[in-house]
């Protein structure tokens, strides 16, 4: 079995990251925006694990565990705000949230 080169892993991570980023920008539904954020964070996780295995260190995997923790915390706060949004506007559309301007 041949090892997968680091470049391929990083390219995969970049593609996933871009997909996630475009999801955050393009989607109107806040729930899908949160999901796209998850995709971005997990793409970074792939990059870390790939780099960690190349260097034969645990650091990459440790960082991935920290990222997972962050993702959980962030989604918890995000979903709480999502419920407030649903209660107030009866909709999850991000366009409800555009009152501040100047």
């Amino acid at each position: 079995m041949t090892a997968i080169p680091l470049e391929h892993v990083l390219i995969l991570a970049c593609i996933l990251f871009t997909i996630g980023f475009f999801g955050v920008i393009v989607r109107k539904n806040t729930l899908f925006m949160l999901m796209s954020l998850e995709v971005m964070l997990n793409a970074v996780g792939v990059a870390f694990i790939g780099a960690g295995s190349v260097w034969q260190q645990a650091d990459g995997q440790v960082m991935f565990i920290l990222i997972l923790t962050l993702a959980a915390a962030e989604v918890a706060v995000g979903l709480a705000l999502l419920i407030r949004l649903q209660q107030r506007f009866k909709s999850l559309d991000i366009d409800c949230l555009s009152q501040l301007k100047g």
């Binding site: 793409a43 870390f48 780099a51 962050l70 407030r84």
Partner: peptide, 29 residues
């Protein structure tokens, strides 16, 4: 405007930290 402000800050700050993390991943690689 509490929900709007909170949500804006959450989404943007989370995207920013993903960018920062990707940068760290590259530096580590």
């Amino acid at each position: 405007n509490a929900v709007e402000t909170g949500f804006k800050y959450l989404i943007l700050s989370a995207s920013a930290s993903s960018f920062m993390l990707l940068g760290i991943a590259f530096i580590y690689a």
